[in-house]
Every structure is written in structure tokens, then in C-alpha cells.
């Protein structure tokens, strides 16, 4: 729980008159919303490979350059971002923004980190729409369709592999995957199939997970 200890230390450091310092020798400070926006917009422009691919950039910017977070806080917030119901990098911006400036900070950081990539996609789609442009772009678009379908299939495998199931769950889990996929392919609403799969999984897989936790 060193990460939670880091938060406690940081909260103490933010109390008026406190002399606590972080691990780089500076007191974490609260940025303005404009500063928050500019920083996360910049991060949205220069980071590739998602949140985990940007660890060193986030450390250099948020911890060492800006001094908004301690290294411990950064690590903990990256883990926290994985349980936020949104894409991880967006969730990370949300938890950091909320930590620094509450609700407004959260919304500001999310919009700022989302905008560069979103505007690039929009611009690319408008200027290079393969359906409208025809010529080589139509052929490229068809090849990309195959690539995207393969990517989604491949990512589904990674989603399965990253589940870290143990024991019986390693057999039951993929059966749930197959059942959800089969039901959706057969015409059942994808949302309903997935929700039923989660509910059944929470019931069936719970004991295995609890055993694994208890063993730690």
C-alpha cells in the first residue's frame, strides 16, 4: 500500500503551511485549468502506444517537469485508471485531472488528451475518405477493412490472455467468451449477451478468484 501512503503524504503536503516534499524535492502543486489543458493536450499530441506506452513521458512531464504528482502517485493513478469504465489513457487523464482540480479538472484533462487524436482522425477521414476519393484509396480502404477485422480478432485473443485466470477459470472463462460470441452471432443483442456473460461469470468464477486472492 505504498501508493496509498504516497497519496496521504501528498495530501499532507497540500495542507497550508506544510513543509512536506515529494521524492524529487518539490512540493506537488495545483495547476490552473488552462495549464492542465495545455499539458494534457501536449501529451495527447506526443504520446503513442496508449497509457502504458507513455509511462516515461508521463513521468517526465507530470512528475519531474511539472511536479504535480509524486512518482508513487503516478504509479497508483495508472493502476486506478485501469478500473475506470473508459479507455485507459482517457481514464488516466480523468483520475489525474480529478486529483488536481476535481470535476472541472477531470473534464478538462479528458477533453485535452482526447482532442489531438480525435481531430487527426476526423481530418484524415474528411481529406482521405476512401469511399469518396476512389482510385488507390478505395483499394487501400479495402485492405484496411481486412486489417481491422484481423486486429479485432487478435485483440480478442489478447483480451482473453490478459485475464490472468487461474485453475478452473481458465476453462470456464473461454467458455463464457464462446457463449457470448455465439449468442451475439446468433442474433442476441451484443449488450445483453455481454451483460449476461458478466453476470454468469461473476457467479461462476467468483470462487476461483477468491481462492487466488486468499492465497496471496
Amino acid at each position: 500500500m505504498s501508493g496509498l501512503g504516497g497519496i496521504a503524504a501528498w495530501k499532507a503536503a497540500r495542507e497550508p503551511g506544510s513543509q512536506s516534499v515529494d521524492d524529487v524535492g518539490q512540493t506537488p502543486r495545483t495547476p490552473s485549468l488552462l495549464e492542465l489543458f495545455v499539458t494534457f493536450f501536449h501529451l495527447g499530441c506526443i504520446t503513442v502506444g496508449g497509457m502504458w506506452g507513455a509511462v516515461s513521458t508521463l513521468d517526465a512531464t507530470l512528475v519531474r517537469k511539472k511536479g504535480w504528482l509524486t512518482k508513487e502517485d503516478l504509479d497508483l493513478l495508472m493502476v486506478a485508471a485501469t478500473v475506470v469504465p473508459s479507455p485507459r489513457f482517457l481514464g488516466f487523464a480523468g483520475v489525474v485531472g480529478f486529483r488536481l482540480r476535481k470535476w472541472l479538472g477531470s473534464a478538462t484533462a479528458i477533453v485535452a488528451i482526447l482532442l489531438p487524436g480525435a481531430l487527426l482522425v476526423l481530418l484524415g477521414a474528411i481529406l482521405l475518405d476512401p469511399r469518396a476519393a476512389g482510385g488507390p484509396l478505395a483499394s487501400i480502404g479495402e485492405a484496411m477493412q481486412c486489417a481491422v477485422v484481423g486486429l479485432i480478432f487478435g485483440n480478442a485473443f489478447h483480451q482473453l490472455a490478459s485475464s490472468k485466470a487461474k485453475g478452473r477459470d481458465r476453462i470456464v472463462g473461454p467458455l463464457i467468451t464462446a457463449a457470448v460470441a455465439g449468442a451475439a452471432m446468433a442474433g442476441v443483442s451484443l449488450i445483453i449477451a455481454a451483460l449476461v456473460g458478466i453476470a454468469v461469470g461473476a457467479f461462476v468464477l467468483r470462487n476461483e478468484s477468491a481462492k487466488a486472492d486468499g492465497g496471496k
Binding site: F153, G173, S209
Partner: peptide, 17 residues
């Protein structure tokens, strides 16, 4: 844990569709 399995199934169905 169950969400990761269910979402994997949803992804397979989406790619198929």
C-alpha cells in the same frame, strides 16, 4: 475477470459481424 471474458466474446462477435 468475468468482464474480460465477456468483452472478448463481444469483440469476436463484432469482428465476425
Amino acid at each position: 475477470l468475468p468482464a474480460s471474458f465477456a468483452i472478448a466474446g463481444a469483440m469476436v462477435a463484432a469482428a465476425w459481424g
